[in-house]
Design a protein around this nucleic acid. Structure first.
Lengths: 135, 135
DNA sequence: ATATTAACTTGCATTTCGAAAGTTAATTTT
DNA sequence: AAAATTAACTTTCGAAATGCAAGTTAATAT
């Protein structure tokens, strides 16, 4: 996506400001999805061509990496980079907002409670966990 | 936008998961824009028909309200609701991410420093300020 | 009374999206 | 070794969203 201004918010939206990219990151962060087929089976069922183009863009943006699985060369393994992992606080704030204003859609109650009690701790723990799983 | 799943992240994206909606909220929060013409003159210059449809959707989502100005009935004044104000943390996390990974785009250094030092304080202060200005 | 302003709406070309079918290379099954 | 299956895409094409320019309407300013 082309750059639209020097605004940092606009910049982030340039990377993930569409309907799908943040859901891909969500699936990688919270549901440990790492392959094309796993990602395609999300609740929202995105079209394969869109998934393909979003993965390509996320890679170009430096939020994920793509490697061929050594044991099965058909499989491509997608991993979050540190920049990708650091999108976590944005996602957590979305969960927090929804929990407050759309409680019926909150399916991550454990995060919501944890974020209220100690947000920094939660982010550190989750980040560390993600870092470990992507190395 | 139609509901796509019960996921809270997906829900938020249902309200603001496009290229423009969060920029409208940004302009209202950080630049005190409150009318159509003010919003149209953002850095990114969104098309008028898109602005119109996004404002309508934000209103339906309960993030903003629309009132006719008492002194000039041509003017429609848009205001953030509490739910809209509570999108602030999401925007601040975007600023934080950009500050870290795209420092050249960071044009809100004052927020970035403040968020590092005392995030909760900053959010409280900004929220209070916004609440005051929208009543 | 005329011109200007604010907030849209409309028409239309271009771009993006979405569903389904097709392709390619690697692996598994027979 | 041949056939079937699987993973990860790519292609096609109709539908929907976007972007640009021009037009509309009501209110205010001159």
């Amino acid at each position: 996506m082309k750059r639209r201004s020097d605004c940092p918010i606009s910049n982030v939206l340039g990377h993930v400001g569409d309907k799908w990219s943040l859901l891909i990151l969500r699936d990688m962060m919270f549901f440990e999805k790492k392959t094309y087929s796993e990602l395609q089976n999300s609740d929202e069922k995105m079209a394969t061509n869109i998934l393909s183009s979003r993965l390509e863009r996320l890679e170009k943006s430096g939020l994920i990496t793509k490697q061929t699985d050594a044991n099965d060369k058909r499989r491509k393994v997608y991993k979050l980079t540190q920049a990708g992992i650091d999108m976590l606080p944005i996602l957590l704030e979305m969960i927090a907002w929804s929990s407050k204003y759309r409680p019926e859609t909150n399916t991550y109650p454990e995060f919501y409670e944890a974020i209220q009690i100690n947000r920094d701790r939660l982010i550190k723990d989750l980040s560390a966990e993600l870092q470990a799983s992507f190395t």
